[in-house]
Design a protein around this nucleic acid. Structure first.
Length: 357
DNA sequence: TCTGGGGTCCTAGGACCC
DNA sequence: TCTGGGGTCCTAGGACCC
């Protein structure tokens, strides 16, 4: 039995963090703006979270070391991230978008998928609907978004990235193959740096190359992922637009300003991370069973150590005690530490738990 | 070039149970 | 002495997303 044809919209806010900052601070408009770590005159550690298009013109990109961004664009306005603000604005935008969709799925802080199959008869009507969504976001929030419309989530997502900023790209079912073929494989969801490199070694550069590649070889080389790669290259994706509910884990981590072997400073940082995690656990009314700590040494070597408790808890004392024990038995003496992290998982809603007991 | 902080999912091996 | 099969849970690492 043939599935009903779907029409999916992907909404992607343009350079979200910097766009929000520019909206809130008229004095920085017209300048390159970079949200991320403190550059500290070129000596800062950390990376660029988001940069506006003026900064991108100098070569600045998300994820780039902030020291490198500083060399490329010294006259930019550098701002620390203001997550409470971005989350507030994000919630307002998601409210707007949600009411245009039969099914809605938020994706990160500034993206969303909308299944509008039941609301529009064809892609032309979907394009008009997408225009209305962009307009409402512009009028109510003073921000621009780029939208992609396609027969599934994969194509819609790639389409939203096709023309930016303030873009609107529609890819009909019969146009999918021609649209995807010339694009680099890196545009596919789940194809990151590593997979891109492996594919390149096979002579696969574009999505078209991948579509022509033998699917059995892909499966034997990449396992489950290989089959997925084959389907994606053909523009096929049956995954549903689905609201995710229930966090699986929550964590805090911090990179020291300077790598340190000072045990007192390390323990203090660990305790503070635990406090932050417990605040989130309490806010969300959660109980947890598994504690994981993360240690990154000087040189970027990273380890995780986990322990599952025989009981559910939301107590700071349990977290700090477990985290300290995991650290004590795994910390390599006299090695400088770059980063420390604390995560809790095996989460259960505390309210639900009460009714179970 | 020198690599944040918040997440999700997958894989592989080992423990343990029936 | 040599040794099953299936299932679940746990740990560690890694790829990927925004």
């Amino acid at each position: 039995m043939a599935e009903k044809r779907r029409i999916i919209i992907h909404l992607d806010m343009d350079h979200f963090y910097t766009a929000v900052e520019e909206r809130e601070r008229p004095e920085i408009r017209g300048k390159p703006v970079i949200v991320g770590a403190d550059p500290k005159g070129g000596k800062g550690r950390g990376v660029v979270s988001t940069s506006n298009y003026l900064a991108r013109a100098s070569g600045v990109r998300s994820g780039m070391p902030i020291s490198q961004a500083y060399r490329l664009c010294q006259d930019a306005v550098y701002l620390p991230p203001n997550f409470p603000l971005y989350i507030r604005v994000s919630n307002e935008i998601m409210q707007i978008a949600r009411h245009y969709a039969d099914r809605f799925e938020q994706w990160g802080i500034d993206e969303a998928f909308l299944d509008v199959s039941g609301r529009v008869g064809d892609f032309t009507e979907a394009e008009a609907l997408a225009g209305k969504i962009k307009q409402e976001i512009r009028e109510r929030e003073g921000l621009t978004a780029s939208i992609g419309v396609g027969p599934n989530k994969l194509v819609a997502k790639i389409a939203s990235d096709f023309q930016k900023p303030d873009g609107l790209t529609v890819v009909r079912e019969e146009e999918v193959e021609v649209f995807l073929a010339p694009l680099p494989v890196r545009k596919l969801l789940w194809v990151g740096r590593k997979t891109e490199a492996k594919l390149k070694a096979l002579g696969v550069n574009t999505i078209g190359d991948l579509a022509r590649f033998d699917s059995e070889s892909l499966k034997s080389m990449f396992g489950v992922m290989g089959w997925q790669l084959h389907l994606m290259a053909l523009g096929l994706d049956e995954s549903r637009v689905e609201e995710r509910e229930g966090m699986k884990s929550t964590s805090h981590e911090t990179t020291f300003d300077e790598d340190t072997a000072d045990e007192a400073a390390i323990l203090k940082a660990l305790d503070e991370l635990c406090v932050g995690v417990i605040e989130e656990v309490e806010k969300q009314h959660l109980l947890f069973k598994t504690v994981t700590i993360k240690i990154r040494y000087q040189g970027f070597e990273t380890h995780t150590r986990a322990r599952t408790l025989p009981f559910l808890t939301n107590r700071l004392h349990d977290l700090q005690k477990t985290a300290r024990e995991l650290l004590a038995t795994n910390l390599q003496k006299d090695r400088k530490v770059r980063l420390l992290g604390v995560r809790v998982s095996s989460l259960v809603s505390g309210e639900k738990q009460k009714t179970l007991i």
